[in-house]
Simulated assay, not measured.
Amino acid sequence: MGLIRGYDTETLQEIVDRTEAYERLAEVRSQRSFPAQLEQVWLLKVLGEMAEALDISEHTVRLARMSGTRKDLLHARILHASVNQLRGAYTSAETELTTCIEEAEGQGWPRIAALAYSHRGKTRYDAGDYNGARADFKRELFMRQELGADDTQLEQAMSFIEAAERRRSAIA
């Protein structure tokens, strides 16, 4: 998403220009395409509008199940899990992301698997499982390296690993 200005070093959440995000939300709110609905969920999530983000994310999962591809369904489920993560439903989010990882890896879709590892790492991080978070972020970094990701994506994954290590050291 072009609205991301960076990531908070403590929460690992996206930093966005809220004005731009609300303007973009106003643009896509009336659109009913699957990608537009996924974007709405993401925008609502980063803006902290969790109830509406959850409602629309559940709708996108149903829509993808009925008329989308398996990749569409995985993207919808990953986004749905990330909303649950921010709502504090860590077990639900982690379980959903684990099944997404298994399916993406089983289908040979490493980009989707890397995305799911990143989100599961964030979920584990928020839940206080810093070893699990670190392992997921390392797996994401390895996969992104294998995919030839740009330096920005690799640095982001490395910063997530460092954050998990800092938190792990702080409680040790």
Rank of each mutant, 00 (worst) to 15 (best):
A157H: 01
E162H: 10
G106D: 06
V46I: 12
E103C: 09
L25S: 11
K138M: 11
S82K: 11
C100I: 05
A116S: 06
F34V: 09
G6W: 10
F34G: 08
W109M: 14
F142S: 15
A26D: 15
C100S: 11
T11M: 00
K71R: 15
E14D: 13
E162N: 11
T123Y: 04
I56Q: 02
R32I: 12
Y90W: 15
R139S: 12
R134F: 02
T123G: 00
A113V: 01
V28N: 07
S33P: 08
T123V: 07
K71E: 15
I112M: 08
A21G: 01
A157M: 06
G6H: 03
Y22F: 14
Y130T: 08
S82L: 06
S159R: 09
R29V: 11
Q13C: 08
N84T: 03
G2Q: 10
E14N: 12
R166C: 04
E20G: 09
M1A: 13
Y90D: 03
E103W: 05
D150H: 09
L141C: 10
K122A: 10
Q85C: 11
I4R: 12
A163T: 03
V83N: 01
G2D: 10
L86T: 10
Q107V: 11
A64E: 02
D126Y: 08
T98Y: 00
N84H: 15
T19L: 14
S57W: 05
R5S: 06
P35D: 08
L86D: 11
E140R: 14
Q40C: 13
T123D: 06
Y90S: 09
A163E: 04
Q85G: 05
G128I: 05
R124C: 13
R29I: 12
R18T: 14
D150I: 01
M50P: 03
L154I: 07
R32P: 01
Y130H: 12
E94N: 05
Q31A: 14
E23A: 14
Q145A: 04
E39V: 03
Y7P: 02
